[in-house]
Write a protein that binds this DNA or RNA. Structure first.
Lengths: 199, 199
DNA sequence: GTCTATAAAGTGATAGAC
DNA sequence: GTCTATCACTTTATAGAC
């Protein structure tokens, strides 16, 4: 995952892949039938880890939802849940640990291979679905398509910190994302989401 | 540009590059001193085209700004200028024509080479600067850093349609971006920006 | 299941003809 | 200025020893 993410599919040689794993180059052919098989296996790995992580959040959130629906301050609860989601996503996008697999996902977004289906079905679709559920409860009078589009613009605000990382850091005058920077990003996105939901 | 964008720097072979240009492989060495020189020349080309385009918008906008400053409805004019900017950016991001160079820029964002400086100095920085100017006039009481960050979240909302294109299309149930889809994206982003500026 | 060795194809750069 | 031909090297895949 690290080698593919750092060097890209083509630039990553089977030798650097096997070296990083501490095994011989021939092991790739034996275990994964070739470089491409290893690439797909990496995405299966990412998809499963993400599925577990998102699945946990989604389950927790959906169970909390039925309680929130009855509460008198339901909108506040929905908004808080959305805020916790964006906080988590910002944490992930700004953290350097996400770099390898984030690069892989971005590549797949531009020219999807069968690996993209794995990602979307296991976690992206699920995550977008949960967010849409929340936004739809906050703005039930709007049609589904509008709320789905609203979710996309929320996603974009957090995604930028991965996809346009170098440009953002140069624009902000940041050399990397410090704890206080991340805090102000979270606050800004929470405020934006609250405002755009309010309409 | 097309070959590098489609295949990436490493995957693009000098032979496929020269074939696409309808010349011999040896011509790359003669004209650009090698594959890397050609790569940099592509970015010089992109940077110059963009510089011209953004420079025009920026000049027009700055000259209109002094007139707007005196107007009684100045905030409306700033917001409208910002809306025209996001409209244009959305037009570019959703258009398939931008795919080759957008891919190149995304790649550079993740692991910047000297080519990234060309891009930032010639058009990204300029564009972000103009947007920051507008946001700062709309929210003069906020400090510069906050307004710069607000610009980033606006950028993210339009950038998503390039960076997360495949996922968004699957989420929205769109096979590609139709005219009416683009119109609703523009409306959504304009509404979001207005709301988040209002606070 | 892991290794060495090697085959077969592709890579970027470049010398030299025209 | 453009071509062919070729060099030196790297690539992935795989045969065969252990």
């Amino acid at each position: 995952m690290e080698v593919f993410g750092r060097e890209g599919f083509h630039a990553a040689s089977t030798r650097s892949l096997s070296d990083a794993a501490g095994v011989n180059q021939a092991a790739i052919g034996f275990h994964f039938r070739g470089k491409e098989g290893l690439y797909l296996a990496v995405f299966e790995h990412i998809a499963e880890r993400m599925r577990a992580r998102v699945g946990l959040i989604a389950a927790e959130l959906v169970s909390g939802l039925s309680a929130a629906d009855a509460a008198p301050n339901a909108p506040d609860l929905y908004l808080e849940a959305l805020g916790r989601l964006t906080d988590t996503m910002i944490e992930i996008m700004t953290h350097s640990e996400s770099e390898p697999w984030a690069r892989l996902i971005l590549q797949e977004q531009q020219s999807p291979t069968p690996a993209f289906d794995l990602l979307f079905d296991n976690f992206m679709g699920r995550l977008l679905g949960v967010m849409t559920m929340l936004v739809s409860r906050l703005r039930p009078e709007r049609d589904e398509a509008t709320n789905k589009l609203a979710v996309v613009t929320i996603l974009g605000q957090v995604l930028a910190f991965r996809a346009a990382r170098a440009g953002i850091q140069r624009h902000m005058g940041w050399s990397d994302f410090k704890t206080e920077d991340i805090a102000s990003i979270k606050a800004m996105v929470r405020a934006n989401v609250a405002a755009q939901i309010r309409g």
